[in-house]
Design a protein around this nucleic acid. Structure first.
Lengths: 190, 190, 190, 190
DNA sequence: GATGAATGAGATTTCATTCAT
DNA sequence: CATGAATGAAATCTCATTCAT
């Protein structure tokens, strides 16, 4: 019995994930408002009503994708540190960040498009993101402090803005020369 | 008669502008898809149908706001130059850019949200934007070349990404320390 | 002064007719409901509001076209008779009828399409048509009676149905062999 | 499972038919353009949106009613023949035709009103009708030929025009003496 | 009389969500 | 759990009609 329940739960989690992936792809492709529940369920190969066995609403589905995806992608980034981050470690961190972007374009398109959508109640998702992001942010601030920068917080905000700008241009511009830009960033800022 | 016709045309242009401003504000506030024609016309104090005397469709209205706004805001930026841009002139140019963003938040929110919307046929609006933007881009490339930078185009792309990132964070984050960031940008990059 | 008034009235009648002709053509071309007041006024080369200086409404305009057109086209048909109609006169009458159809296709298309439109209050227009049609109908009944037909009314109703059917097929079927059919009608029924 | 699917499909076909019948009645009563989707769904006792689960658009719904109705009503008429049609068989054929008209007034009103509507893309429906009608037409031509008529095609065209005229007058004129007319037709033409 | 900008009721269509099976 | 037919609110857009000029 317990076995069965476990199996059932795994299957449920599996289906949930399947829906989220299909939804993420369709949201990123057509935009949140233009993409319909039908689009998603067709893409996932399931019945329309099934989404509502796993999520409260279209909005809930989308917010959970954004929050859980953020947790997944950014959650592990603060890993290593013994307290002091070296230049080498920071470069690896940035490298990893870029890799996460390059291999999850759909997610990041959705992420940014949602952040820029004025409707949509982002309170809850923001809270999750904030919680995940705070330690990462702090880690970079620490690094800048260890480099004896004058105004480490401002520097990190600037740094984050730069990354946002690069990522956005990369995500929405097919010809964006990401590798070249990465080189310039590395030699200029690291 | 000619007088009358002229007056009528002026009034029409006036009304057209009134609709565009109301639409821009509502689009920026509620997002393109969530904002209804009713929202716009109520905000403008006119009847629902009137929009369609001036624009073909909701989408047409939005694209014209984006295109004409871009022309207005970016169109005049290549002004001055006697061929060689000095550091001083470049700083003024960046200053002006920031000012245009700070005093047209609604417009820029709409602008970025549209660029990141995967639905919406952006072909035409892109063509307009490209035409306007190209000389400005070239001007900055020229400046970088005059500074003997190694890879001026990559540098400008990076520079533009940085600005995009800063502007986006400023537009959607109430507490973004724009002035502080501007200072850091000036001392680091100019 | 009287002169002016007269001229003014003539001009008015002229404009009224101009509107009716434009309307008839557009109604016949696009159908009553699909054809807009704008279509009509553009076709007539006048301002949209002007229609309402001459007619109460779109429906009024259409009904007046149908009624006055019927009067014009059918009104004169009972002309000649000295009481007794000869075979020759009857053939001329039918000939004339066909000619009126062939040279006023637009009108007859409108006429039939309106008769078959279940919405539209046809009461008034029917009264006019009835008044005009009655003597013509009677004339044909008289002719049939003079031919010692058994049931002249039924014969005329049948005859009229036949003409309706021929005209309708001719109006809406480009390849309808009207001339051939006319020959068959003449040799079979007259 | 297969059972269920079958049942579901039967139910779907049933509902589709229910919508078509309701629509036919309302179209015939109010006219295609005046009749709204709301009229139809209220009359059918279903929700407004449901029509669009079964038909692409209001126009699609109407065209399918016309085409499928024609197939149903005229499709079976070429039945019997062993090659030679007797006078008796021909009379039965005409009888049947009249019966089909008398017991499907709604359909035929819709049919004629659509044929006379200049807007509406009739291409597809015409193709269907043509395919169904052609063998019936041919059958009558054959009959006329067997009667050694001089110009059988013209005779059939005339005959068809006569029927159209009779049917139309019957459909739109409450006092049309159909039975009397039928008698005259039989004794005159058969 | 003539104009055409403005109105607003109303039509078609979409789609998130529910729920009986 | 899964299905997909059914719902109905709401959005875009049209157009007859009015009226200030």
């Amino acid at each position: 019995m317990r076995q069965n329940k476990k199996v059932g739960e795994d299957a449920k989690a599996q289906k949930r994930k399947q829906i989220m992936i299909a939804a993420m792809e369709m949201f990123a492709q057509k935009g949140y408002h233009t993409c319909t529940i039908s689009d998603i369920t067709k893409h996932a190969g399931i019945a329309k009503g099934l989404v509502y066995n796993y999520f409260d609403s279209k909005e809930d589905l989308m917010l959970k994708i954004v929050a859980e995806g953020f947790t997944l992608l950014i959650g592990g980034l603060d890993a290593n540190s013994d307290g002091i981050i070296t230049k080498e470690e920071f470069k690896n961190f940035v490298d990893l960040l870029f890799k996460k972007v390059e291999s999850n374009k759909y997610y990041w398109r959705l992420y940014y498009s949602i952040l820029l959508q004025p409707d949509i109640d982002k309170e809850k998702v923001f809270k999750t993101i904030e919680e995940i992001y705070q330690p990462v942010f702090q880690m970079v601030v620490d690094y800048y402090q260890s480099q004896n920068k004058e105004n480490p917080v401002a520097e990190v905000v600037l740094w984050q803005s730069l990354l946002d700008g690069i990522v956005l241009n990369y995500l929405y511009n097919e010809n964006y020369p990401l590798d070249e830009i990465k080189q310039v960033v590395y030699q200029k800022f690291i």
